[in-house]
Design a protein around this nucleic acid. Structure first.
Lengths: 347, 347
DNA sequence: ATGAAAGCGCTAACAA
DNA sequence: TTGTTAGCGCTTTCAT
């Protein structure tokens, strides 16, 4: 009687499942959301129907009706490619395992960095369950304040922020301290340093770790040996040129990230210097590039993948029913020096 | 400082705009969707109200009611990090300009590569407007067929597929041919080649370009000089070891991507060989790593960023009202050899 | 050129 | 433990 057209395959909805299982939509919804108020026998019937029909809930409808969109935003601003990919790959994997989806927001081109409202406007439309802010956004107080008004759960990545938000951070100062000591242990006393950009709070922390190690070992801080970079290969190369062009150049250079360290090595090679025979170079992060250059780079590992995983985990907690509203903070302080071949004793 | 209140209790809806402008919701909707059936005066009133209220449409509601979610999926499987980041950054930028959002799907861990249905199930829930498939997914016929059943617009990236889908491709064979000729022009006659993995259709095309150039110049194809890699730095290094360990090693090695070329250079350095004095090395893609190693890599540029931009543009066309249903194909055949310092004449 | 009504697929609140 | 009733914010269809 009702000649259902075979050609038009209507997507399976919760209604179809309910009919097939002989229950109401609500019961199906409860099963889907793993609520406990369903009798085991009923649950099984529903699960069978779901499997039989190969039903997939509609994310949009869920987001509209419920509030949870299962969408997590990940916003970044001018990241280092290697840092970004490691972060993404890990976050994505964890999202899949937890049934979330990641919406990437590249905020790099926002003209006026102070007009953070442009960022916020863009985020508002998407109805994110939660948002992950990576450095340097996670260190931008004005932005943080604006986002708070959005009322979406936020997790800061790499910077702790004011303390009001949940965060996943790394002990940058301790790591830089450890690497500096590593260099000192290799008999270096003139150790150059390439700072990161000021808008990254971790830049100052890494510099602090470097300075602390120096002074602890009775080494004077020579401002001549400190250059500024912006985390790019190019800036590392420029810093290397400057440092190596001095009358008494350093015997070792510690760059605040791997990309810049690779740049320092390139600058050394360009001057015909052997690494590590004539110059030791150390990096920071242990991203993919560290093992993809010659000589392979000695660096401090920043566990980006683990931190990304933790960030997604935090979001699950923070968006969960039984969250008490207190910000959750995870600080990763497992420091590991990855010894490869770019550090040795001075000539 | 902006005077906007930071906390908005109730989000602004289309209804608020309609009231403020003194029109119906429908008129506002028409203005939002740039329909032509609105009188200029009315449109202006509505636009003023939108601006005054700082209204942002709700993506979820739009997706549910309409069908267009403004969400574009980008799926990948075990990509090279540098390839991925260039692709992402460019696609993201174009998305922002066109008002779309990118939902990244990392399919790398799907256990059974043949159980493509697992991929499809995951994609079904999200209600994507369109999907971009990157290599090697774009070359997976079984997957393509399954996705066709989903009825969402698909754009193949890097591989043309069977011809039924829209695509953005690069002329890999021509590029490999050009690079091989570049090496021959530098007097090389024993040119090693590192192939890409077989699941990437472009691997065969790049090999074909290499072989064609060889035979056109009267050079015999020596199977001993061809190694297989999987696009990773590590595999390039292994291939380099093999090639360089032969009794009569090649004087130049052409790797099918930059990561592998970097590996070949590392293998050469490990053996104490100077590049390019004792061995020339050429890469493919011109990704970030090419300029971040020493010596900087001579490579063929694959315009990933432009292609990504084109892909998003194609999606806008293909999901637009006035699309005739015919697959659109863009093939990028602007080949450019980026000469840096890893290629020179043989010793 | 504009408006009214009816859902899209789902979940929150309340009943039973 | 389960079902019923309303919407979520928007776009469709059909009026006007």
């Amino acid at each position: 009687m009702n000649g259902e057209p075979l050609t038009k395959r209507r997507p399976i909805t919760i209604k179809d499942v309910a009919e097939k299982a002989g229950v109401s939509q609500m019961t199906v919804s409860r099963v889907l959301n793993k609520q406990t108020l369903v009798k085991a026998a009923t649950r099984e019937k529903v699960e069978a129907a779901i499997a039989a029909l190969n039903y997939q809930p509609n994310l949009m409808a869920r987001g509209l009706a419920g509030g949870r969109s299962k969408l997590i935003g990940l916003a970044y601003y001018n990241p280092s490619p290697s840092y970004l990919s490691e972060l993404l790959v890990s976050a994505l994997k964890q999202c899949r395992d937890l049934g979330h989806h990641l919406v990437i927001e590249d905020l790099s081109d926002i003209e006026d960095a102070l007009d953070t409202s442009a960022i916020v406007e863009r985020l508002r439309t998407i109805h994110l369950d939660a948002l992950i802010l990576t450095p340097p956004l996670s260190g931008n107080a004005a932005l943080l304040q604006l986002i708070e008004g959005l009322g979406i759960a936020t997790v800061l990545f790499g910077n702790a922020g004011g303390g009001g938000q949940s965060s996943v951070v790394f002990d940058d100062a301790a790591a830089a301290h450890a690497m500096t000591e590593h260099l000192i242990a290799h008999q270096h006393s003139r150790i150059g340093f390439v700072r990161g950009p000021d808008e990254h709070p971790s830049s100052a922390q890494r510099a602090a770790g470097y300075e602390k190690a120096l002074s602890e070992h009775g080494l004077a801080l020579d401002e001549q040996l400190v250059c500024h970079g912006d985390f790019t290969f190019r800036s590392g190369m420029a810093a290397g040129e400057v440092l190596l062009g001095q009358t008494v150049p350093p015997t070792a250079i510690f760059a605040s990230n791997d990309d810049m360290a690779a740049g320092v090595i390139a600058a050394a090679h360009r001057r015909g210097l052997q690494v590590p025979a004539q110059l030791s170079v150390a990096g920071f992060d242990d991203t993919a590039i560290a093992a993809a250059i010659w000589p392979p780079l000695t660096t401090v590992r920043q566990p980006i993948a683990e931190m990304a995983q933790a960030a997604i985990g935090l979001i699950t907690e923070v968006t969960g029913e039984d969250w008490d509203g207190q910000p959750l903070n995870r600080v990763n302080d497992i420091i590991r020096i990855v010894e490869r071949e770019s550090v040795g004793p001075p000539a």
